[in-house]
Amino acid sequence: MLEIKNIVKQYAKHRALDDVSTRVEKGSIFGLLGPNGAGKTSLIRIINQITAPDSGEVHFDGKLLNPDHIGRIGYLPEERGLYKKMEIGEQMLYLAQLKGLSKKEATDRIKHWFEKMEMQTWWNKKVEDLSKGMQQKVQFVATVVHQPDLIILDEPFSGFDPVNVNIIKEEILALNRNGATIIFSTHRMESVEELCDSIVLINKSKKILDGKVKDIKNTYRSNTYRVEHLPHQEQISAVDGLFTIEDRGDSLENTTLTIRIAEGKTINDVLAYLIPIVQIHELKEIIPSIHDIFVQQVTTQAPETLIETHE
């Protein structure tokens, strides 16, 4: 769907994007992750053709990004905004027509969405008369009303109440099932982790890592498990060549062990050792969250980042 190649974006002394490349597969849900100020918005603006990169290219469906693609992209910016004094229906029509829909088509689609989101009575209301949550809904509809192939959502869940977050999430997933490619951009990595097929991590203008979430997690698995067992008078200690103990903990009823399995051994080998000794209550592999991976990546890069002067 989207092929981003060696993008560099320079603002005077500040380099917002430094040689960033990644791929977004058609029909996938893609996470564009990184802390505030990492360069996410700069990249999104380049994809939206709001700004142009200093060097590098973006290909959309194999073609160099050009104005014809604008109508195929839906963009929900981080900073939401609508004309406060304009009526909702009229405003939607205007935005949809700017995306290239005919007036009739736009009217039909907007009505369809309004019914779906239970917003029918809002048509003649002014934006300033709506609550913030309602405005967000309107803005979301405005983003997807022209049936874009690529939907870019910048911090999509900020400002929504939990009920609306679920509604919007369902709608996004439905759109995805119908073939739309979704890009989530957020600094709250845990909020989209379970939704994303692939991610790219950006920090300080540079790409740290990208790929399928599954693959990334596999790479960062450390063969660590958490074992919960009923209390036992003897403490379990590490066994050379089989496992080491990373952490111990006691809850009211159970004892918890965090163990790392030695190379060449499997969890089954460990269980075979433990079962005769204690009664196992629960077993879970500890898989690092994207956030943990990010922190790990950033801290290993620390010496380099320290040298960089702050703008």
Binding site: I70, P77, A142
Partner: peptide
């Protein structure tokens, strides 16, 4: 709203 519009 300017950002929405200039994406179009």
């Amino acid at each position: 709203i300017v950002e929405v519009i200039i994406s179009s």
